[in-house]
Amino acid sequence: KLPPGWEKRMFANGTVYYFNHITNASQFERPSG
């Protein structure tokens, strides 16, 4: 399970990334916590 605010998303080319809808942060590494 991801930390609060984070969700797993995917680009059109299939690349997975993680987006935080609270802070609008995005990253390729899975957030810890």
Rank of each mutant, 00 (worst) to 15 (best):
P4D: 11
G33K: 10
T23Q: 05
Q27N: 04
N20H: 05
K8R: 14
N13Q: 04
G5Q: 07
N24R: 10
S26Q: 13
M10A: 10
A12S: 12
P4A: 12
T15G: 08
L2A: 03
N13T: 06
E7K: 05
G33N: 13
Q27Y: 05
S32E: 13
T15V: 14
Q27F: 05
Y17S: 02
P4M: 11
N24W: 06
E29Y: 08
F19E: 02
K8D: 02
S26R: 12
N13F: 03
A25I: 14
L2P: 11
K8L: 14
T15L: 12
A12Y: 06
W6M: 00
A25R: 12
F28W: 11
P31L: 01
R30Y: 13
Y18I: 01
Y17K: 03
N20T: 01
M10E: 11
E29I: 08
Y17P: 00
Q27P: 00
E7S: 09
M10D: 04
N13H: 04
G14P: 00
N20D: 04
Q27E: 04
S26Y: 13
N20F: 03
G14E: 03
S32F: 12
G33V: 13
T23S: 07
A25H: 12
P4F: 14
F28N: 08
M10K: 10
R30A: 10
P4H: 12
S32Y: 13
G33D: 14
F19W: 09
M10N: 07
G14A: 03
T23L: 07
A25W: 09
G5I: 03
K1S: 14
P4L: 11
T23N: 07
N13S: 08
R9T: 03
F19K: 03
F11V: 05
P31F: 01
L2E: 08
E7W: 05
Y18G: 00
A25N: 09
T23G: 02
N13K: 03
Y17R: 02
H21F: 15
S26H: 11
G5N: 09
L2D: 05
H21I: 15
N24A: 09
L2Y: 05
G5V: 04
E7I: 09
Q27A: 06
G14Q: 05
K8N: 03
G33A: 14
E29D: 11
N24D: 06
E29K: 06
Q27K: 04
P4K: 10
A25K: 13
Y18A: 00
K8A: 12
T23V: 04
S26T: 15
A12T: 10
R30S: 08
W6G: 00
I22E: 10
E29H: 10
E29V: 08
K8Y: 09
A25D: 09
F28M: 11
E7L: 06
R9Y: 07
E29T: 10
T15Q: 14
A12C: 13
F11K: 11
T23M: 06
H21P: 09
T15F: 08
E7Y: 05
E7F: 06
A12Q: 11
V16Q: 06
G14W: 03
Y18H: 00
R30H: 14
R9V: 07
S26V: 15
A12M: 09
A25Y: 08
F11Q: 13
N13W: 06
Y18K: 00
G33I: 14
F28S: 09
E7M: 06
V16D: 04
I22G: 06
P4T: 09
